[in-house]
Design a protein around this nucleic acid. Structure first.
Lengths: 227, 227
DNA sequence: GGCAACCAGATTGTTAACAATCTTGGTTAC
DNA sequence: GTAACCAAGATTGTTAACAATCTGGTTGCC
């Protein structure tokens, strides 16, 4: 069995098709399912107590989300994302989140400004205390907040897809020396420009931030080739 | 029956799941299936000679592509796209195709420059002759060419999804008075800037072009409210 | 020893029947 | 005349059995 209970000891009982989708998706995003790992239907059936039809539908959906690969008569497996692809995904995020930042700057309310700035403070604390886990979490919350404030439905669903494909690298980037400090500075700039209402500057700072993540990814790539 | 043979007299025989997906998708994009029209599984089965399982899988995939809406125990229907949504989609296209244009400017080869400029000439001819059909077709070919030249897989997939959702409005926009002339001028600028190798200018011109489409859409909206 | 054909087990693809849910039309009570 | 109700038909959701395909190891032959 490719998927044993020891490897993914979660969500033990009852599941519909959506249940299986979220369970497997979370499993992939949290790294419990490794890239390239096989996902036999029978295993998922017994793991999540779902019917085979439900599992099958769920796998089809995950394939269309781009995080699962299926080959005819050969089953499904976790789709490996190369570093090149992670770069592409981040480039795409740069322009789409840039759009969100611009819209957010135009549409942000007083209340939203308060809670957005509060996230900036949380970020400072996390970096000061060297808490990488908290940094990564608040990091994502900032991006999520800008996405929500923008009220741009289309961009929102696009970002959901991109994020689920690339989260695996987020942890890796955050572990680069000095990265949290740089990322924090950039996020504060994004927050300030969005709150200022300057759409152009908000777009620029968000893009610059994500292009700096692209640089970090390529640096990671260089480090790997060095070994 | 919501889907009669008279309304969609195409693809009469044999179909796998992919066959049904492309058939229905094309039907929606070409306007043979109207927005909101119901798509009962039984009808699709007899129309395309596919098994019900295949039809069911196809509908699930089309739902995830955002062009079909499904409600539990109430079946599937063609998802209506509002004008507001079309605006959002075009805004998203503006930034993603802007990215493609920038990458294309950096990566374009001598051969590709020739065929891209040839498309520009075709566009001039179509506008001179007042051939709206040809204009719309070449129009899409230009965007497709830039997308291909950019060699940006991730952006390409995103654009495929956005395009299938919004094609319905392309014809409408092209029918606005003076629109083909404006669009032609903008496309020529895009082509020239991409061929010049100036990534920033290529991105700017592509964005400007699609934002002008947004304006055209909103003008369309105003016309509708006037009636 | 190496190679090719082959066989058994595992895994996925397909189909058909059954169950659950919704819609529609008519009927009845008020 | 209207509104609530109910039953029949239509439509989708679920399950289980069967068929097709692939994988890995084994056997026989050169």
């Amino acid at each position: 069995m490719a998927v044993s209970n020891e490897m993914a000891p979660d969500e033990p009982s009852t599941a519909t098709v959506d249940g299986v989708v979220t369970a497997v998706r979370d499993g992939i995003m949290q790294g419990r399912y490794a890239p390239g790992q096989r996902l036999p239907e029978a295993d998922l059936v017994s793991l999540y107590q779902a019917s085979r039809g439900a599992v099958r539908t769920a796998l089809a959906q995950l394939e269309s989300e781009g995080i699962v690969l299926r080959e005819r008569n050969r089953g499904a497996r976790v789709r490996p994302i190369s570093l090149d692809e992670a770069v592409e995904i981040t480039e795409a995020r740069a322009v789409v989140e840039g759009l969100c930042a611009a819209k957010a700057a135009q549409r942000i309310t007083a209340e939203e400004k308060k809670s957005l700035r509060a996230l900036g403070d949380e970020l400072r604390v996390a970096v000061d205390e060297g808490d990488v886990m908290a940094y990564t979490r608040v990091n994502q919350e900032v991006h999520r907040a800008v996405r929500d404030i923008s009220r741009h439905e289309t961009a929102g669903v696009m970002l959901d897809r991109l994020r689920t494909q690339s989260v695996r690298y987020h942890y890796t980037v955050a572990l680069l020396p000095g990265r949290p400090a740089v990322g924090m500075r950039e996020h504060v700039e994004v927050i300030e420009s969005v709150c200022s209402g300057d759409a152009d500057r908000a777009e620029q700072t968000m893009r610059a931030h994500l292009l700096s993540v692209v640089d970090a990814l390529q640096q990671l790539d260089a480090n790997l080739h060095q070994w």
